[in-house]
Structures are given as structure tokens and as C-alpha cells.
Write a protein that binds this DNA or RNA. Sequence first.
DNA 1: ATGAAATGCAACCATAAAGTTGCATTTTAT
DNA 2: ATAAAATGCAACTTTATGGTTGCATTTCAT
Lengths: 109, 109
Amino acid sequence: MLNDSALTDPAPLFAALGDRTRLSLLAKLSDGESRSIAGLSSDTDITRQAVTKHLKVLEDAGLVISKKVGRESQFAFRPEPINDIRAYLDSVSRQWDDALGRLRAFVER
Amino acid sequence: MLNDSALTDPAPLFAALGDRTRLSLLAKLSDGESRSIAGLSSDTDITRQAVTKHLKVLEDAGLVISKKVGRESQFAFRPEPINDIRAYLDSVSRQWDDALGRLRAFVER
DNA sequence: ATGAAATGCAACCATAAAGTTGCATTTTAT
DNA sequence: ATAAAATGCAACTTTATGGTTGCATTTCAT
């Protein structure tokens, strides 16, 4: 089942990003090249199976997509959810900025 | 020990945001008003002690600050780490955009 | 046809995370 | 002085998470 990238609840998205291993997987893939599990596992110290699990978390969050090609499955970065997160952060910051603005307006009289 | 807001490893920051309860706590505080633990616990269905734990996670991540005033401890939103996250997301997206650009340049000849 | 490569899948382990209950402590209000 | 309010602190339970090992399956190359 593929993710809808709905911005209703950003928590799972943040959670998917809240792990160093997954961030470094994303970093590798963010150059736009797709890579196999073996390719992504080569320069880590954890097992290939562990990498597979992390990739599943990333895929469930919509941050990567995968397709089987031959005997290997290729993973690629999917940037859309990043915008959802940005939108969420913006909404929080905007609320904060508005509050600051009102406070300033209040103090300045 | 207070956080330095270093952007060396955004994973703990993402992890702190990867929980609905904590996101809703942040949402309440993002209006700039500071609130007590009791105030933040009033309209949740979890116990006050659980809220306290979440607040500690947020504080360790630098997303809130607290000070004791009288018998209660007041918590306030701290927006600085949000910018760290933005910076990280920007770096990932920029890398992605660059890759797309190179790909386009490559295709167009 | 067969061995190596890449992956899938299941069971298992250890630790962390999220939540609870119970009780002690500190402050405030009457 | 004392009861209520707000919090702190510790122990405990349950479940999720990150990782492993072992083995089966699929696909490729020779």
C-alpha cells in the first residue's frame, strides 16, 4: 500500500526521519540515483536485513519508492513528503511569528 | 543541560517531533504563551506524568524551555531548532534539485 | 545446469519508549 | 496551621524499535 502524502498527521513522517541510519540512507538517495539494497548496505556496519527494514519504514512514510528490477529491488528518493513537513513547520512558525507580532503591538502602546 | 541547537545531527530533533502527543503540545505552545504542566495536561487523555515525560523530551531537543515559577513550572516554545530542521530539509532538497538539473542538462543534448 | 548474487521471510533478542500507579515534596490559599 | 494544588520521583507494564541469525527463493552468469 502506497502512501498518500497527506499532511493530516506529520508525526509518522518525522518519526521516519528520526533515525540516523535512515537519514543517511536518504542522504545517499537524495542525489536522485536509485540504488539496490546491496548497494545501500555496502558501506554500513549493520546487516543487509536491517537496511531492508529501514527502507520499509522510509517507503511506508512515502520518502522512497521501490521497484523490482531483475533479481534486485531498486530504491529511489521521493521528495514530496519533504514539502509536507515544510508546510507543517511553516504553520507552526507562522503561528509563533503572529504571536510575537501581537505581543510587539501590545507592548508598543 | 541545555541544548546547543547544533545542526550536526538532526535525527534526535526529528525523533522528538515524531510523536502526536508532543506535536500537539508544541502546537499549543506555538502561540507564544507559556503554560504549566497542569495547563498542558488538562485537555489530553493521558496522565499528567506522561505529559511531563513528553515535555522533557521536547526540552532535551531544545524545542521548549522551562522555568519554575512558584509551585508550578512553566513551559514555552523555543523556535530555534525549527530552523535547523529547515536547513537540513533544504540541503536534501537542494541536492535533489541539483540532480534533477544535471539530469535535465544531460537529456537535453 | 549449476553456483553465486540479491533478496525475502521468520524467529528471536535486547533495549527504548509510552504509559500507568503510588507516594513524597513544595507552595499557595484560607 | 492545614488542606488543596502542582509537581517530582520511582517502580512497573506493555509494546515498539533496531538489530541479529538462519534459511528459503529468485535470478543471473558461465
